[in-house]
Amino acid sequence: MRFSARSRSALFATAVTSTLVLSGCGDDNGSSSSSGDLTLGFVNGGDTSFHTCLQKAVEETAKTEGAKVYTANSHQNAGTELSNIEDMISRNVSALIVQTVNVDSLKGDIAKAKASGIPIYLTSVATSDVDDILGAAVVDLKKLGSLDAGWIAKDAGGKDVKVGIVAGAPGAASDLMVGGFKGALPANAKVVANQPGMFNPAKAQDVAENMIEAHPDLDYAFVANEDMAFAVRKAFDAAGKKNVKIVTANGTDEGLAAVKSGDFSATVANSAKTIGDTAVTNAVGLLDNKKVDKIANIPLVLVTKDNLGDAPQYCPK
């Protein structure tokens, strides 16, 4: 694996495919005006507000670093992720930043890149063997879930309560969040339903409608991101269940407004901007053998009505 890759010449395609886009310091036709030879590939995992803001942060920070960026989106498909990584390898990027679809698929993705001498920098998660990666901007997703569970524990007191979970897509961030949430719930909080919303608001609304029909006495719901949480709130309200309290994650402007209004009881601020900024800055630093933390831990903030001002900026403006 070559970590000092700034001086390598990048191979650029003359045409941009529908899944791969050149961005960064570029003009409207997609060509780059940067004089540097540092190139980064960014393989995004999905299409939620988190992924959109993460990519925007990567692109904007890359501009300040004088880097050219190719971006691709795997749309929650592990097979597409591998194909995107192969495309990035063919362009001989200096380093590859990956927001993975599925933690289990990372082993093959990393092996493919490593065999081609392309270092991978991960966002949100890290592998168990960090020797195989350039670095990672890590979110403690188990802690994220546990923070929401802690709010429920405090709010419920010692009363027996019923909790529903609207998870994201199985196999990556959602599994870690849900595991952390369930593990931190007190004994008096019983999980009565746990279904994936696939990070899709329409799917999450269907899940919530079925959940509240099966469990009309539901007290709380943990929803894996705010995009889905708005749809879940809509489903509960339509069923006359405005009393069901929702805890979620992201910390978008819209999510904070929902906390302020009482539509959400709490959200865990998990700044996409901070992750993207850190990933690019640290990846470039590590390529240049600078003293940069290989594994950077992204701070998390449990946000309620009482501390709305503590939430970090979520998305680049």
Score class of each variant (00 low, 15 high):
141 L>D: 10
197 G>I: 08
64 T>E: 03
150 G>W: 04
52 T>I: 10
263 D>N: 02
91 R>Y: 10
266 A>L: 11
18 S>Q: 07
56 K>R: 15
20 L>C: 14
183 G>K: 07
136 A>L: 06
187 A>Q: 14
92 N>G: 12
122 L>C: 01
119 P>Q: 08
298 I>A: 12
71 T>L: 08
30 G>F: 09
311 A>M: 01
94 S>K: 06
260 K>D: 07
96 L>N: 01
116 S>E: 03
14 T>N: 11
117 G>I: 06
312 P>Y: 02
131 D>A: 10
6 R>N: 05
267 T>I: 10
24 G>I: 07
161 V>R: 13
142 K>L: 03
228 M>R: 05
118 I>E: 03
78 A>C: 03
202 A>W: 06
206 D>P: 11
246 I>T: 01
241 K>P: 14
153 A>G: 07
229 A>W: 02
317 K>E: 14
44 N>H: 13
153 A>F: 09
281 T>S: 15
189 A>E: 02
138 V>M: 01
263 D>A: 03
279 A>N: 10
1 M>C: 09
129 D>F: 12
54 L>K: 01
81 E>V: 05
22 L>N: 13
244 V>K: 09
115 A>P: 01
76 Q>W: 11
188 N>A: 11
161 V>T: 11
58 V>N: 06
22 L>I: 14
93 V>W: 02
191 V>D: 01
2 R>K: 14
22 L>C: 11
51 H>N: 13
237 D>E: 15
152 I>G: 14
239 A>I: 09
84 N>S: 02
127 T>D: 09
67 A>P: 07
90 S>D: 12
41 G>V: 04
